[in-house]
Design a protein around this nucleic acid. Sequence first.
DNA 1: ATGCCGAGCATCGCTCGA
Length: 290
Amino acid sequence: MATWNINSVVRRTDQLLDWLARTQPDVVALQELKATTENFPVQAVKDAGYRSLVVGERSWNGVALLSRHELVPVIKALPGDASDKQARYLEAAINGMLFACLYLPNGNPQPGPKFDYKLRWFERLKKRTAELFATGQPVVLLGDWNVVPTDADIYKPDSWRKDALLQPESRQAFADVLAQGWTDAIKAVYPDKVPFTFWDYFRKHWERDAGLRIDHILVSSALRVLDAGVDRDERGAEHPSDHAPVWAEIELAEKRRKKPAAKPAVKRAAAKKSRPAPKPSAPSDAPLAG
DNA sequence: ATGCCGAGCATCGCTCGA
């Protein structure tokens, strides 16, 4: 499975199709479609082997879930404020698991009404994720969280200190979600030095690997993370999104008791940890996504 | 303090993103 803030699905349909064909994730969460539901490339995605569930919006926002398997809609908006019409949240059931695709408000400039909206949205999200975790069912939260969780998740924290993504309130809200019991998939695989997921278009930040980690995959306690990573090559492509896809391989936690033998996927994850993070120009890790 | 880049559109100048 994977999550990708694609920054216009119309502008980058070809890149999306190439990436799907190459990496073949089972489930994909997309954010910042910048397209209405009608303008989403449903047929091209279908031809690539994926069903799609889209909550679009003209010009801004927009989220979608793609799946190779049957995809049952659960909710198409974050509960808690019927007046909030921004297309930022979507849940679907796939293969007995629940997938939530979220695009958390950016919140800049800060302070101000946009930051207030971000924090209110986060409070609504915390309620929903607490409900989902409490079911004990396998649940995955994927998306652009617009939060740099700690100073270790950004190239140079002091240069972004006033940004909404680094504010103590934003970080506390993210920590509150994690404290419900979720596992941060990237952090689980890279406990020491995490890979970045976003590099803005300015000042050759990509070329300098001056990035941020703001796209996150959180899994519930019914699931176990086998491996995870970032498809950095997509950020180095022609006319790229400013975000790279983040992927994770998971399995049901109960499987561990049934199959105690070591799995190759686990070995691969262990080997990956011992390597230094690749440079932007280096080929990305094998982009297999469960 | 600002623009830097890139995308959408009520398009050639603004808003938004992060």
